[in-house]
């Protein structure tokens, strides 16, 4: 699916555009329905991105010239 490659921001923007198009009301019914479906799909996608993102707080530590990603554990000062 095309949306897979888009960033959250881009999907959000598309959603906004589609809503505006639909609101402008110049579309015929078939087009309106398909725009509506597309909009709902985009909205769902945004929600999925928000919900499926995993909380991760990591720290990059250099090891043999490479950065290794490890879970961040706060050190006491």
């Amino acid at each position: 699916m095309m949306e897979e490659e888009l960033t959250f921001e881009e999907i959000m923007k598309k959603l906004e555009e589609i809503t505006m198009e639909l609101e402008n009301g110049d579309l015929d019914l078939e087009k309106s329905v398909s725009k509506f479906e597309e909009g709902m799909k985009l909205s769902k996608k945004c929600n999925e991105i928000l919900e499926n993102a995993e909380k991760r707080i990591s720290v990059l530590i250099e090891k043999d010239g490479k950065l290794e990603e490890k879970n961040f554990i706060e050190e006491e000062e």
């Binding site: 993102a53 991760r56 990059l60 706060e74």
Partner: peptide, 21 residues
């Protein structure tokens, strides 16, 4: 870093932060 983590996770519980010390 503590402030950044606190504020970020409060706004988005699923935030992804990468700290480069």
């Amino acid at each position: 870093i503590r402030d950044i983590i606190n504020v970020s996770t409060r706004r988005n519980p699923n935030v992804y932060l990468k700290l480069l010390p």
